[in-house]
Simulated scan of single mutants.
Amino acid sequence: MSSSPPETRPATPADVDAVADVIRVFDIELVGRALLSAADIRVLWTSADLPTGSWLVERKGRLDAVAWVVLGDACESFVASRPGRRDLEPFLLDLAEQRVREAGGLQLRLDAFASDDLRTELVTARGYEPVRYFYEMRMELNGPPPAPEWPEGIRPAAFRPEDARVFFDAIDEAFANEWGFRSLPFDEWRRVRVDESDTSLYFIAWDGDEVAGFARCEERGADGFVGMLGVRPSWRKRGIGEALLRHAFGQFHARGKRAAALGVDASNPSGATRLYERVGMHVASEDVVYEKDLT
């Protein structure tokens, strides 16, 4: 006799911390550290319809597994489970594929760490193909990092709440052609990235009254994490990105952080991976984006 499928319920915004904890232990089990914060999940959920496109599996009052989908031209799914409950992942992926088909989606994407043999076997057996690779890059902060060298006319400054609009606009311009980038409505972005976040590690490189570049960083345990680093097209190839990065490293070290980390598209057309290697970072883990044709 076959067992009945697990009971699920949709996620709500109030579940974000419990979901972040499942993802934290999932990441630690596979790569040794957490790679996604509660703030990141809040941003991802702004593009998801949680009542119809998310699923939580609970047991004895504890969240064991989570999945959600983001619909669009290429739909995206996210699936995570606690160690010992990875048997739930095929069931959750079934739900995600079913929801995307119901919505008329043609493709579905799902990430897998390169070291995650279980996830890799699951997606390849279902006909998913790798379409993109992302790196987590790290650098130990064993001493004070080199001071940044700012190009002439460029002035670094801490982010202020009144800078929110120009900071947001600079992100949209800098990342407009990045693979997989989804812009949020400004009010949603300001809520999750300014009103509900610690902005003390957000930095702006000013050229007069124009934003030339920016860094959105945060503390993650013993790490300083660069969540987003960008330079607007008209200011590229001048060393602003490297200066912002070194500025962030200095701030991390001043706060007692033991390492700096970030994520990057391995095929980034701006050559970001080379920049990060030049400042001393190395690839610590690899994430593969798989895609399946649902037609």
Rank of each mutant, 00 (worst) to 15 (best):
E152L: 03
N268M: 00
G213Y: 01
S267I: 00
Y128W: 03
A272W: 02
E97W: 03
D64V: 07
T12M: 09
D207G: 04
E136A: 05
G230M: 00
E136D: 10
R126W: 05
S4V: 03
D187G: 05
D163K: 07
G180C: 09
E58H: 08
V289Y: 02
A215K: 07
V289Q: 10
L92M: 11
A215Q: 06
C75H: 07
E277F: 05
D198N: 14
G241F: 03
E140N: 10
T8I: 15
S81G: 09
E196D: 11
G241N: 05
L30F: 00
D117P: 00
P185N: 06
R160D: 06
R238C: 04
L44K: 06
R220T: 11
S200H: 09
N268A: 04
A20N: 13
C75Y: 05
D94A: 01
D15V: 04
G72P: 14
A222P: 10
T8Y: 13
E129K: 07
F168Y: 15
P145V: 12
E242P: 02
S77Q: 12
P161T: 03
D73M: 15
R99Y: 08
S267Y: 03
R258Q: 14
K60C: 06
V192F: 04
A38V: 00
S4I: 01
P130G: 14
T199P: 04
A112Q: 03
T52S: 14
V231P: 04
E242F: 09
N268Y: 04
D287N: 15
E178G: 04
K292L: 14
E76Q: 08
V131K: 15
Q107N: 10
E136Q: 15
R193Y: 03
E97S: 03
W179E: 15
P146K: 02
Q98P: 05
I204K: 08
